[in-house]
């Protein structure tokens, strides 16, 4: 009995050794410079081995978020796929800046950024189109109805630094699910 407890205790350092090491934790946050992203443009960077897209939304893009709402599965973002400060139709801190993990919630594919109206199907208002299984998202990463993906795409925890010229992506929002 005591021997079994001893063995279990000895297993702890061995199991713990398999957890991500210090260098992984050190590379956990990423800072992105926003000054080079013109309105309507995007930048995708690798954060924690996952693609994060930063979109500089134009006023037209922001206006489209209201128009597509009847077609969305969860327009009010009730599923906690974003930190509380991004629980709005923009799914962001500032409406013009979208910071989002660009991973389809269906089977982990990387959706294409299709901002141009009509570029995916007639009547398309701009958004994301997953080439794998056809899931559709609006320009806030909110998922459409009747597509394979079950949830809106995930928003990580982030904050603006350097007077709003840069954004620091700090952590995955714990309740958000990727795929």
């Amino acid at each position: 009995m005591v021997g079994a407890l001893g063995c279990a205790g000895l297993a702890v350092p061995f199991v713990k050794s398999l957890e991500p090491d210090a260098s992984v934790a050190a590379a956990a946050t990423t800072v992105a410079d926003l000054t080079g992203i013109a309105p309507g443009m995007q930048m995708t960077l690798s954060w924690q081995d996952k693609p994060v897209i930063i979109v500089h939304r134009t006023p037209e893009m922001i206006a489209s978020l209201k128009e597509v709402e009847p077609q969305l599965a969860d327009p009010n973002c009730t599923v906690p796929q974003q930190p509380p400060y991004a629980k709005n139709i923009y799914r962001s801190i500032k409406p013009e800046w979208l910071v989002m993990v660009r991973v389809c919630t269906h089977l982990c594919c990387i959706p294409l950024f299709k901002p141009a109206p009509g570029s995916v199907e007639p009547g398309w208002d701009g958004g994301f189109h997953c080439p794998c299984h056809g899931s559709l998202y609006d320009l806030s990463g909110r998922v459409y109805k009747n597509v394979p993906a079950p949830r809106n795409m995930a928003i990580p925890e982030y904050r603006f630094v350097d007077g709003g010229k840069k954004v620091e992506i700090t952590a995955m929002y714990p309740e958000a699910k990727l795929c």
Partner: peptide, 26 residues
């Protein structure tokens, strides 16, 4: 990510399997 779908311990187990945020050197 299938390992990660195990209730409660899933994400910890997945990070044990990966040793990082994604599939990498570890």
């Amino acid at each position: 990510s299938i390992v990660g779908a195990i209730p409660y311990a899933g994400s910890w187990l997945a990070s044990l399997a990966r040793g990082g945020f994604g599939i990498g050197t570890a």
